[in-house]
């Protein structure tokens, strides 16, 4: 009891504010916290999207005054434009090539660096550098390396092959596509690498030790131990990369400008050109909606399935 007295029985120092309903204030509190973010997204992302539904059905074109109702004409113009359809194929082709190469290369490098050794930390730090560089600069850097006649690439190839090489890396098919893929692979292989490395290092070593004791080796270990363990990581990395790769724009803008002609038009680049170079805003919006719906399908089927188990 002596202790209690020492601590004091003075309750007057503690103001006791009583609010009528804790439940209600809690409920308000949690919604209050999300309000600013939700309002911002509504204003900058959702409202424009809704606004653009109106743009879809009128003529919003800086070259033609007024906003006359045109029905589905905008859609018709986009869908019948062979360049638009071609750009979808370019997008798919580049996306598949980029993501596949980045995945395989990233997985390979991650497996080489999965075990700890001296200098590994430094090597990883160097490998991830491209992730922090603007794609514009990546495009610029590869243009510097590849461009004829200034870049050193053709010179090095000439030395290697023993005859003169004069490839127009940014202007000749298929080298312009190769250049775009190389730049993208340079920037985003580290993305795959980092995620897959996290997956690989999370595999408990005793699993491998058990396999070793069982006399299982090499390819078998990879197929039956490594792959199942990092399969969720693989799915995640591929999905995230896929959804970013289909918007490819920056490196094309800097490296090929979509050229020669419209040969390297991705959908994003095509729509940008229609909208902001030719100012057919309604037509571009119609194309953007088609592209958006295609993307949403991918999101709903891939991302939702992917993130649900993680959210639990």
């Amino acid at each position: 009891m002596a202790h209690a007295a020492a601590i004091g029985d003075n309750r007057s120092g503690m103001p006791q504010r009583r609010l009528p309903s804790a439940k209600k204030s809690d409920r308000q509190f949690k919604w209050l916290l999300v309000t600013p973010a939700v309002l911002l997204i509504l204003a900058i992302s959702i409202y424009p999207l809704v606004f653009s539904i109106w743009v879809l059905f009128v003529n919003y074109d800086f070259q033609i005054p007024g906003h006359a109702f045109v029905g589905l004409k905008n859609f018709q113009q986009v869908v019948t434009d062979p360049v638009f359809r071609y750009s979808l194929w370019v997008t798919v082709a580049l996306t598949v090539a980029n993501v596949a190469i980045e995945f395989l290369l990233g997985l390979g490098i991650a497996m080489l660096l999965a075990k700890s050794f001296r200098g590994r930390g430094l090597i990883i730090s160097i490998i991830i550098v491209p992730l922090f560089i603007s794609p514009v600069i990546v495009g610029q850097a590869w243009a510097l390396l590849l461009q004829r006649p200034f870049g050193p690439t053709n010179y090095l190839l000439s030395q290697l092959l023993g005859h003169e090489v004069t490839i127009g890396w940014l202007t000749e098919f298929p080298f312009n596509f190769i250049a775009l893929v190389v730049a993208d692979v340079w920037q985003w292989t580290p993305f795959m690498f980092v995620i897959l490395l996290a997956g690989l290092t999370a595999i408990p070593p005793h699993v491998y030790e058990a396999a070793e004791l069982d006399g299982v080796g090499g390819w078998q270990v990879f197929r039956h131990i490594t792959v199942p363990h990092i399969a969720p990581m693989m799915m995640l990395a591929i999905t995230f990369r896929l959804l970013d790769a289909i918007r490819m724009f920056d490196t094309i803008f800097i490296m090929t400008g979509g050229g020669p002609g419209t040969q390297t038009y991705t959908t994003s680049f095509y729509l940008y050109t229609i909208g902001f170079a030719q100012f057919h805003l309604s037509r571009a919006t119609a194309g953007a909606w088609i592209f958006l719906v295609l993307t949403l399908l991918v999101i709903v089927f891939l991302v939702r399935r992917l993130l649900k188990p993680e959210a639990k």
Binding site: S45, S52, G275, A284, L292, T295
Partner: peptide
């Protein structure tokens, strides 16, 4: 994951 092109056209306007 929304394609920026879909947002940017109406946002620009």
């Amino acid at each position: 994951f929304l394609p920026p092109i879909a947002i940017i056209l109406p946002l620009f306007l």
